[in-house]
């Protein structure tokens, strides 16, 4: 899932301060699960905004909605009527959702209420962790199912480095050493000999070096 967190309310307020009627719209998928931009968070952000703006002597109308997914047109289109009636939109989706609304509703300013941080999962309640960098050339098979690009703070393909202590990373003592996790996983699989294989430099052309990445499949077109 995509992980995001709310921007400071003052930053959000400064973006929408000049508008008379604003729609705060949430997304019912990833940001609902990471409790940053679902229906409940839309209510919290809208409530804090109303109060913050009132204290500034402004009382714009702040209305709320939440759709299933902001990254698919069929759900985005459900907002057409509501968006036509407002001056600006504050999206509590990830950056994908914000851009989808901006593209679909060309004449409406759309602002982000969240900072999109990473792709990952909840490690436990209230603790989300990045596990995939989306490099476009997955090598998890070589690393026992633990990604060194996302989970080693140095992104080493041949590790560990000398900074791993008691299973923690020297960059942050609260952070697991990605290579320790790879070692333990390969050990439990009986594949520890793989750790001695030298991994060749990665071809980063599948990452962002060639601009916006696209996938086009004729077989699934309608």
């Amino acid at each position: 899932m995509i992980i995001a967190e709310q921007k400071p309310i003052q930053e959000i307020k400064s973006m929408i301060a000049g508008y008379q009627k604003v729609l705060v719209v949430g997304c019912g998928t990833c940001v609902t699960v990471c409790m940053a931009g679902g229906e409940k968070e839309v209510g919290i952000i809208a409530s804090t905004l109303r109060m913050a703006l009132k204290l500034d002597g402004k009382e714009p109308e702040v209305i709320e909605d939440c759709i299933r997914r902001q990254c698919e047109w069929e759900f985005v289109d459900e907002l057409k009527e509501k968006i036509e009636g407002v001056d600006a939109v504050l999206s509590t989706a990830c950056g994908v959702g914000v851009q989808a609304l901006a593209e679909r509703f060309g004449d409406k300013p759309v602002y982000p209420a969240l900072n999109t941080t990473s792709m990952g999962m909840p490690k436990e309640h209230g603790f989300w962790i990045e596990t995939c960098r989306g490099c476009g050339d997955c090598g998890l098979g070589k690393f026992g199912g633990v990604c060194p690009i996302a989970r080693c703070s140095k992104g080493l393909l041949n590790g560990p480095c000398g900074g791993s202590q008691d299973g923690k990373c020297e960059v942050d003592k609260e952070m697991d050493c990605g290579w320790q996790l790879i070692y333990e996983r390969l050990n439990s699989l009986g594949q520890l000999d793989q750790i001695e294989d030298i991994v060749q430099p990665k071809d980063w052309s599948t990452d962002r070096d060639k601009g916006q990445r696209r996938i086009i499949r004729e077989d699934v077109k309608v």
């Binding site: 400071p8 309310i9 003052q10 919290i44 804090t48 109060m51 913050a52 204290l55």
Partner: peptide, 8 residues
């Protein structure tokens, strides 16, 4: 914290 941030 939110109430502090908002100014209430």
């Amino acid at each position: 914290k939110l109430l502090d941030e908002v100014g209430v």
